[in-house]
């Protein structure tokens, strides 16, 4: 069927098979490669996107059910290639190794900072507890989120 969505600020349309999960359709039919296919069971968070303003795991959704929705992936955060403050903090703190989890990590951290501008260490860890880093680079990721929060407060 024809699926039309707002993807990272642009209206996009593609033919999708009913059997595709949303993450598969985003990657294969729309070329949005930031969300990754990890566990496929909602545990690892690599497929995390924002849909209609809410953080969701796109491996747990049918693509056809996303008709008309507004989707933001990691690529939508820096449409002109200028990294956001949060992304810069990830860069500066070397908060990724292989990079597989980074899309989900950044989106989950962004959701936290929108909700809680001055999060405690515990809140940062809780907000990221559904995003697995297989390189176990958690310390630097938490440091990046902490630093992005203080940079924001300093402004």
């Amino acid at each position: 069927m024809r699926l039309t969505i707002d993807l990272d600020g642009r209206e996009r349309s593609a033919e999708v098979d009913t059997r595709l999960r949303l993450v598969e359709a985003l990657r294969e039919c729309f070329g949005a490669l930031a969300p990754k296919i990890g566990c496929g069971t909602g545990d690892c968070g690599a497929c995390t996107i924002e849909q209609d303003g809410l953080l969701v795991k796109s491996c747990l959704k049918l693509a056809v059910a996303a008709q008309g929705s507004r989707i933001t992936t990691l690529e939508g955060l820096a449409p002109r290639g200028e990294l956001t403050e949060l992304q810069c903090a990830f860069w500066e703190h070397h908060a990724f190794q292989c990079g597989f989890c980074v899309s989900g990590m950044v989106l989950s951290a962004r959701e936290l900072l929108a909700r809680e501008p001055d999060p405690s260490e515990e809140a940062i860890r809780a907000a990221l507890d559904a995003n697995l880093c297989r390189c176990t680079g958690y310390q630097n990721i938490v440091a990046a989120v902490r630093s992005a929060a203080s940079a924001r407060r300093a402004r």
Binding site: G42, D43, G45, T48, L54, L55, K61, L112, A127, A130
Partner: peptide, 10 residues
């Protein structure tokens, strides 16, 4: 609930 904001939203 385990699974973060995403699972709680879904």
């Amino acid at each position: 609930i385990t699974g973060g904001a995403a699972i709680r939203n879904q």
